[in-house]
Amino acid sequence: MMLPPPSTVVLGLGNILHSDDGVGPRAVVRLKKHPGVPEGVALIEGGTLGLELLTYVWDASYLLVLDAVDVGQPPGTLIRMSGEELHKMPGSGSVHQLGFADLMAALRILAKRPPEVVLLGVQPASTEWGASLSPAVEAVLGRLVEQAVNELLRKSAATLSTVA
C-alpha cells in the first residue's frame, strides 16, 4: 500500500494574468487531474500572496513550490532548487509585498519548524499582461508537471523507507 507523504503541500505561485508568471498555478491545475499524484497531497494555487499563505503551509513538512524564476537562462529552462540555494531569495527588499522568504521566516518566528522546500521553476519569456503562456513556456509545462509528480513520488518513497 502506498502512503501519502505526511502533510505535503504543492504551491503554485504567480499570476495567471501575467503570461508566464502564471506557470505555477497552471501546473497546479494540471496536477489536480494527474493520476500519479499521491493521495493526501494538498494542491494550492497560491497566486501572488505572501504572508496570507501561512495558513496553507502551517502544517506542511514538505513543500513543493512551482513558479516562474528569472535566472537569466533561455525561456523555458527548468530549474530545481532546494536547501541553501533558496536562502538567497530576498525578503522584503523585493518588489513583492512580503515574499516567500518572509513566509519561511514567519514560520520560524512562530516557533514552527519550516518545511523542507523544493522549488521547481521555469525561466519566463514574458511576464507582461496576457492570459496565456508564451510558446517556450507552454512547451515545457508538461515536463514541469511530470517533474513535480516525480518529486512527490520520490518524497513519498523516501518517507516510506524511513518508516520501515
Binding site: S94, Q97, G121
Partner: peptide
C-alpha cells in the same frame, strides 16, 4: 500597486538568483 498596475521590470521578482 498590484491592481493599479503591473510589474514591468522583471529584475525585482520574488526570486533573484545568482547564476
Amino acid at each position: 500597486l498590484a491592481c493599479a498596475v503591473h510589474v514591468v521590470d522583471a529584475r525585482g521578482r520574488r526570486y533573484l538568483v545568482q547564476k
